[in-house]
Design a protein around this nucleic acid. Structure first.
Lengths: 146, 146
DNA sequence: GTATACTTTACTAATATGATAGAGATTATA
DNA sequence: TATAATCTCTATCATATTAGTAAAGTATAC
């Protein structure tokens, strides 16, 4: 797994919306200001996140974006997988992989499986509610850059 | 972290040399056959591994490659880092990173740090001696593909 | 009806990835 | 000493990914 800028922006976007949760729509412009993201790039990412059912949008004046579900129902792992792809470090770890002569004899595969499991175990168990709480300890609504 | 073909080939190359350890040089041609790697690509990888002091070479007839140290002295993490770069999923996790306004306020950074620590903890503690033993249980000297 | 805000599609520059090509240097041995 | 086997070095290339930019369109509150 590698976190790209797109993935990073997506996470920060959802965190921004989570911090704003319950207070109506938040515009692309405001989200972009929050973490210094290029607005036209962010537009695309928000459309992706909408297709992934992470966010909803409202058009027109007084429009903007909202989380499609409470922050407690969104975890880091699912967002990263949706935006940046599988958490596994290699393709052969996925259950439906067919590129190998005899996959069960490979001494590396079980290791990549273990790496993937450790990563998933961590990221799938951190919700944006957890991050909101953590962020409030920093006494700031500001989301920072990688 | 993402394992590229180059990284995968490098690991399989070192495993092939580890399985052959103590029996003199092993040619590029034989290494390539072992895991079905493109020979000209492998040449480059071997030169990299030589610069990284993982392998040594002997030129001319009866030449070939050998491990520069015993399999027990080479671990997976150091090879992957050398060939494919840092195990960290994002750049901001490295200790000398300066791209952030206030890195300590970022709720994500500590999470990426934890991902990196879990991965390192696993890969830095598996040596090629471990893999040789494991491979022998498969009753085969063949190294498979990702 | 107009300003505000999301939507869609197309395009682009830079870099990484996974190779391939070919000429050159070294060495054992016949 | 000729030569075959082997490593060494540099260049090139096709494709995909990444990180954007641009421009025209649609919906809605007021």
């Amino acid at each position: 797994m590698r976190i790209t800028y797109k993935g990073d922006y997506a996470l920060k976007t959802i965190l921004a919306l989570a911090l704003h949760y319950g207070n109506g729509p938040f515009t692309i412009h405001d989200i972009a200001k929050n973490a210094d993201m290029p607005i036209k790039f962010l537009e695309q990412i928000l459309l992706d996140l909408k297709r992934g059912n992470f966010v909803e949008s409202k058009r027109g004046k007084v429009g903007g974006y909202l989380l499609a579900k409470p922050p407690s129902q969104i975890n880091l792992g699912e967002v990263i997988r949706f935006i940046d792809g599988p958490l596994e470090p290699v393709a052969c770890v996925s259950s439906d992989y067919k590129g190998c002569k005899d996959i069960n004899k490979c001494v590396f595969r079980s290791i990549w499986r273990k790496v993937a499991d450790l990563t998933s175990g961590l990221l799938d168990n951190i919700t944006f509610e957890d991050l909101v709480k953590k962020n409030k300890n920093f006494n700031s609504s500001f989301v920072y850059h990688i």
